[in-house]
Design a protein around this nucleic acid. Structure first.
Lengths: 362, 362
DNA sequence: TTGAAAGCGCTACCAC
DNA sequence: GTGGTAGCGCTTTCAA
């Protein structure tokens, strides 16, 4: 209906000047504006339900208090959603707002996305990916404080990109802890049915798995280290193949690439007349909402710290912002050509023991 | 590094005035600016990689070309994600950007969210909910063109809220088509294992189910109309109970409340030694990504038109915007007290026949 | 054909 | 202690 009230409207109603309104509403009233006038201003503002125009304020301050989020699949994926939620929550608690754009897998569109965001004068940028990824960093990300959530700069990225903070889950440790959990339960014949090696996470988890096996002096059966995908169907397929063998020749525990593949494996076990975890233990990965917890039986899994990753990425950006403006080019203190690759921040995954794992049968 | 170029920078470099730059870059050059000057301006703009400051433009135009999206759980849910993706795609194709905020289920926070968005001068607003919902419309939504995606105004909403366009899936027809599909396959003993009646969708689908049964002169077994939840576990539980009965006393087909519950049901069937669809047909609902299609066997289901809902909601908002400013109060043409409740726009769901349904056994 | 000026709403500075 | 004024970057109108 009525146009939004402006500071001038408030000033008129309170019978003072615009500046007085601005001072009082920004808490700088005391010592500048008469007590009595302050009250009139506050009252007028309330009556008109005045709130400042953030656009105008942004223009004047040359800072928008908006952090742009670019993601390859975020809004349609339950995973990145968590990262975004974490980032958004932290941003909001600092008086910032997030502006998310989704490139819907169309690599290359992120360039446009970054430009659009920059045109909107975002103060910072975070690139969020579904699953750990190498990323060709869009050049625009270097013009404001930025961070990479769940991804890291590819070697062919623009110079300087290597210095961007990168927040990643500690996948090696995640794979290790998952295997260690099974070993602790007495399993010795463990299959590593990772997702797809196109994701760098899988090789990292495999390394963790191997480390845990080595620590326990357990041999790794190479024919049980298999790509078993990220979905019900491939998980089902791989598990069927493995579990069809006679009891003493099959694994007693399966390590899936994620919770959905694990669900497929549990289903495969059921079809072979195998009970979980009595006959075979199955571990998921991700601790995906609405999947792991509500499975029958509830899935033991490794929780990806997605929310934390989002928060940390945002924290990095906000910190750089506080430190003042775009990161100083910071030519490598300590020599070496080019910018020093920043150490990625590894956030620990946490083991969630539920009921799909149990003591080894044998 | 270097501050973003401004129109003035371009003007200097091209040796013209700001206005010339503005005219040329907005396609209004011909007939106003000399051909030769135009070229110089274009060249200068390119060299400086100039793009206009959207914030400044917004301030001047008193329109931000931003549409705000408020949702109760969108970014962390795969469902709303689709709605948002649809809305965002349409917005982008019209030169708009979307600004999404998530209240993370914290009802009441949507008031804040709307206010924040309004402060940022969004041109329009869309409220998106996970699953069909009645919604207490935040008053602020009435001050700009708005729409409701997957929800509709509760009776206690502010006056005028009933007039907001509401886009919903045609759940009655969805329930009908699902049942009709099973009937066509020869099933006569069909169980309706809806989700939770706390969602209005369930009663609507049940109505559709009953209509289809009536059309085929099939009796509805009331003890087979059950709340079976939205997750693996409750679906598994309900199916186990129903399918444990002897063959001739159990349903030959199960209609689940969503795909995940259906997965639980398929798992339950497997544990009872029943093969899908040979021994029992199971239908999902939603056509959820990464679930229905990749199940073993792939799930027959009813696709929720989420993307379309998002698009239609956005279309409604953009249309109102084109029509000029906030919707005219439009006092009910045609009498009656209060604003006439607008007819909701019902978007059809589409049947997706896959392999979890087959000819009836009996 | 061109350039100067106003004004969107805000805040910071500087006279009064 | 107060209020006028400048200026953020843009577009548009109007005068030269």
């Amino acid at each position: 209906m009525t146009r939004k009230a402006t500071a001038l409207d408030v000033a008129h109603r309170a019978g003072v000047s615009r500046s007085a309104v601005s001072l009082v509403l920004n808490g700088r009233g005391d010592g500048n504006v008469a007590k009595e006038a302050q009250e009139r201003i506050l009252a007028a503002a309330a009556e008109l339900s005045y709130t400042p125009n953030a656009i105008a304020r942004s223009l004047r301050d040359r800072r928008s208090r908006v952090i742009g989020l670019v993601s390859d699949e975020a809004v349609t994926s339950p995973f990145d959603g968590e990262i975004i939620a974490g980032a958004d929550a932290l941003a909001r608690s600092h008086g910032f707002v997030t502006l998310a754009t989704d490139t819907e897998q169309d690599a290359g569109r992120d360039l446009d996305a970054v430009r659009t965001l920059l045109d909107r004068q975002v103060d910072g940028l975070i690139y969020v990916t579904v699953g750990l990824h190498e990323l060709h960093v869009p050049r625009g990300m270097l013009s404001v404080p930025s961070a990479l959530a769940n991804c890291y700069a590819a070697p062919d990225s623009p110079a300087g990109a290597a210095g961007l903070p990168s927040i990643q889950p500690d996948e090696v440790r995640g794979g290790h802890d998952a295997a260690a959990h099974l070993i602790r339960l007495g399993h010795r014949r463990i299959a590593f049915l990772g997702g797809l090696y196109s994701s760098p996470a899988v090789a990292l988890r495999e390394a963790g798995f191997r480390a845990a096996m080595a620590e326990a002096s357990l041999p790794v059966r190479e024919e049980w280290v298999i790509e078993a995908g990220w979905d019900f169907a491939p998980g089902h397929h791989a598990a069927t193949a493995l579990l069809s063998a006679p009891p003493e020749e099959r694994p007693t525990a399966l390590l899936a690439g994620n919770d959905r593949a694990a669900v497929g494996m549990v289903l495969a076990a059921a079809r072979l007349g195998l009970e979980v975890p009595r006959d075979v233990s199955i571990m998921g990965y991700d601790n995906e909402r609405r999947v792991a917890e509500v499975m029958v039986p509830p899935l033991s899994t490794v929780a990806l710290p997605l929310r934390t990753i989002g928060e940390e990425a945002m924290r990095a950006v906000l910190a750089a912002l506080d430190a003042g403006g775009p990161l100083p080019p910071r030519t490598t203190a300590g020599g070496g050509s080019g910018t020093s690759p920043a150490e990625p921040l590894l956030v620990p995954c946490t083991l969630v023991a539920r009921e799909s794992t149990g003591p080894a049968a044998t």
